[in-house]
């Protein structure tokens, strides 16, 4: 779930100018021409095929950010496992969080096919060099937040991830197909949990509305800045990594969500939200991009805590990783001795 629908430069400010493509040597020009032909024909690039450095770098950055988002996304929901209101909801939440771990693994594996190691990627995350979806830098204050994450955050992620199933890089596309298959459960369980709350007490209904109020705009921002302010999008489109622009995806999400909110009985916190007959879409208000960029750049309410929790979990798991390796080595030695 959970990717930002655009690629943020790791550890750099957005919009930094990039040098034009460096001139190619002759043999590279031939390889580049072949690569372009494959992309133009909507073909797939596989790990050991030649690809331009910039394509590889963009993919590593995007896929690893996506993987990090899955892993960090386990934290706000994981916080609620011990506080789930029933055994049923607890079992569901555990299954969902486990899925997110799996999604992280599919994506790390896809990124590793590009020649980067798992340790390098984890290191980039843990040192704060790599970005992850800014949506997880907000707190989950009450149980309704867990439902809203499923309904809206996963809902937004699905919108973004379905076109990624057709991405030009084979391993990424295949990972996304697997992720999307599992994602539908995430959105539906969240929505259903909220439906149940909306049949409850006035306080429970208020909790749902409060969670929707806090998450709605942040979910809209997940799709990334307007296409006009998103220079990387054009290149992503050219390479077949990105298939649909940020604004179109956001509009699809709004159009799909408004009727769902009505059935649920909550109000989406946007006074400008109204049906536009001429466009055949819902109009919506202005997104606060300053807040969005502040969070992306590390100044959200939970950035430090999320990263610290993640690093602590990794460090505390070190002995398990080392012990497993030591055990494997010992077994191997024993077998060799027996064979000798």
């Amino acid at each position: 779930m959970y990717t930002q629908s655009f690629s943020v430069a790791d550890g750099a400010t957005p919009g930094a100018a990039k040098p034009a493509a460096t001139p190619l040597r002759n043999e590279d020009a031939a390889l580049q021409a072949h690569f372009d032909t494959v992309i133009d024909a909507d073909g797939k690039i596989e790990p050991r095929d030649w690809m331009p450095d910039a394509y590889r770098k963009t993919l590593v950055r995007q896929i690893s950010q996506h993987a990090h988002s899955e892993i960090v996304g386990m934290l706000p929901e994981g916080n609620w496992i011990s506080r789930a209101p029933s055994l049923k909801r607890k079992a569901i939440l555990i299954a969902k969080v486990q899925d997110e771990g799996g999604h992280g693994l599919y994506l790390y594996s896809a990124a590793e096919t590009l020649g980067t190691s798992r340790d390098q990627m984890l290191d980039a995350l843990h040192t704060g060099k790599a970005k992850y979806s800014s949506i997880f830098n907000y707190p989950t204050l009450n149980w309704a937040d867990v439902g809203v994450i499923g309904w809206l955050v996963d809902g937004a992620a699905i919108m973004n991830q379905i076109p990624l199933c057709r991405c030009s890089y084979g391993p990424y596309a295949r990972a996304m197909i697997r992720v999307c298959k599992e994602e539908s459960f995430h959105q539906r369980q969240g929505y259903e949990a909220l439906l149940v709350m909306m049949q409850g007490t006035a306080e429970q209904k208020a909790m749902v509305q409060d969670a929707v109020n806090r998450y709605w705009w942040k979910c809209l921002a997940m799709f990334g800045p307007p296409d006009a302010d998103s220079p990387n999008s054009v290149q992503g489109m050219r390479w077949g990594i990105k298939r649909i622009g940020n604004d179109d995806l956001r509009q699809k999400f709004v159009d799909a969500t408004v009727p769902q909110a009505e059935v649920l009985g909550v109000t989406l916190p946007d006074p400008d939200l109204k049906w536009n007959e001429a466009r055949g879409h819902w109009d919506y208000g202005q997104i606060d991009w300053d807040e969005f960029w502040a969070t992306v750049n590390g100044h959200g309410p939970m950035n430090q805590e999320r990263l610290a929790t993640r690093v602590k979990a990794h460090e505390q798991g070190a002995w398990v990783r080392e012990a497993a390796l030591a055990h494997a080595r010992k077994q191997q030695q024993r077998q060799q001795k027996e064979a000798a």
């Binding site: 486990q98 799996g102 990972a175 697997r178 497993a324 494997a328």
Partner: peptide
């Protein structure tokens, strides 16, 4: 269906079960 990191073959089988056959 994919790949994963594991310390040995038995560990890899258990991880594969948890990751790819949930």
């Amino acid at each position: 269906c994919g790949s994963l990191h594991a310390s040995d073959a038995r560990h890899a089988l258990q991880m594969a079960r948890d990751v790819y056959t949930r």
